[in-house]
């Protein structure tokens, strides 16, 4: 299992007069870690939402593992193997950490139309949820309320939930944002471990992390991909430097915080 390929054909999305995705044609190979960078408002989150199925594009097609998924709902896409984590995290804040992951596990099990048995005493559910928490280093926090976790822990939980069921494609929206230097390093290490096991689209402003992790990088500006290439290509690209990288911290120097 090492991910599945993704292809976008002429994808477009407008919000009134704002063009968030502009006839985007784009490919990600199976198992690739593809970083998506670009200034604020470039349309990165909007693109992820179209890939996850939360937003439907105005035009164009999305192919996942060769299959046209443009018309599929978000929940169907998840069951096909697309996982997503959110910008600024998105949790069940008043649930326990364990219940958050339980929900992810039972959702991936296909359907939760089970009305009778107590979910919290369901051994299969508990084991799978705990395994996921252990992998995220959060097992000691299992009973804590998700909303009470530190920001770094919340990011790890958010990612852990996206990883349930080993999605073939992982969509990550700024997993490094708001993390301290140490937490950032931990997250980079975690993503490195995930690399190759899933195809990954990584949206991230932390350029050090991006250049360290990515196989390829696409630069998005006003919904258009102005460049795609290896980290070396992108670093050398004059247009990219002008449009975006000029503002970014020099590579090699960790950019802590956001």
């Amino acid at each position: 299992m090492s991910g599945a390929g993704l292809a976008l054909v002429d994808l477009s999305k407008h919000f009134g007069g704002v063009i968030a995705t502009d006839r985007l044609t784009w490919q990600i190979a199976a198992g690739e870690l593809h970083a998506l960078i670009g200034p604020n408002g470039a349309g990165k989150t909007t693109l992820l939402s179209q890939l996850s199925g939360e937003l439907s594009p105005d035009a164009g097609r999305i192919l996942f593992d060769g299959r046209d998924i443009t018309a599929l709902s978000a929940d169907r896409r998840t069951l096909l193997g697309i996982g997503r984590s959110f910008q600024g995290t998105s949790l069940f804040a008043e649930f326990s950490v364990l219940d958050n992951v339980r929900l992810a596990v039972q959702a991936r099990a296909g359907h939760s139309f089970r009305f009778w048995r107590a979910a919290r005493q369901d051994a299969a559910l508990n084991q799978a949820a705990f395994a996921q928490l252990r992998e995220a280093g959060l097992d000691h926090r299992a009973q804590a309320t998700a909303g009470s976790l530190s920001h770094g822990e919340q990011r790890q939980l958010d990612l852990a939930m996206a990883l349930v069921g080993r999605p073939r494609l992982l969509l990550l929206d700024e997993p490094m944002a708001g993390l301290g230097a140490e937490e950032s390093l931990a997250m980079v290490a975690r993503l490195k471990a995930l690399k190759g096991r899933h195809s990954i689209v990584l949206v991230e402003h932390d350029m050090t992390a991006v250049f360290e992790l990515a196989d390829r990088i696409t630069v998005l500006v006003y919904g258009r991909a102005i460049a795609t290439g290896t980290p070396a290509d992108i670093r050398a690209n004059a247009e990219v430097r002008a449009a975006y990288l000029g503002e970014a911290p020099p590579a090699g120097e960790r950019h802590a915080g956001a």
């Binding site: 709902s73 979910a119 069921g165």
Partner: peptide, 27 residues
């Protein structure tokens, strides 16, 4: 029994964060 079952957990999940639940694969 209902609210403590998997179904109940999903129902309360939808109350707490509908969008996330959908992306986790729950219709």
């Amino acid at each position: 029994r209902l609210v403590n079952s998997r179904f109940g957990l999903a129902l309360q999940g939808a109350r707490s964060n509908e969008r996330r639940l959908r992306v986790l694969g729950v219709p």
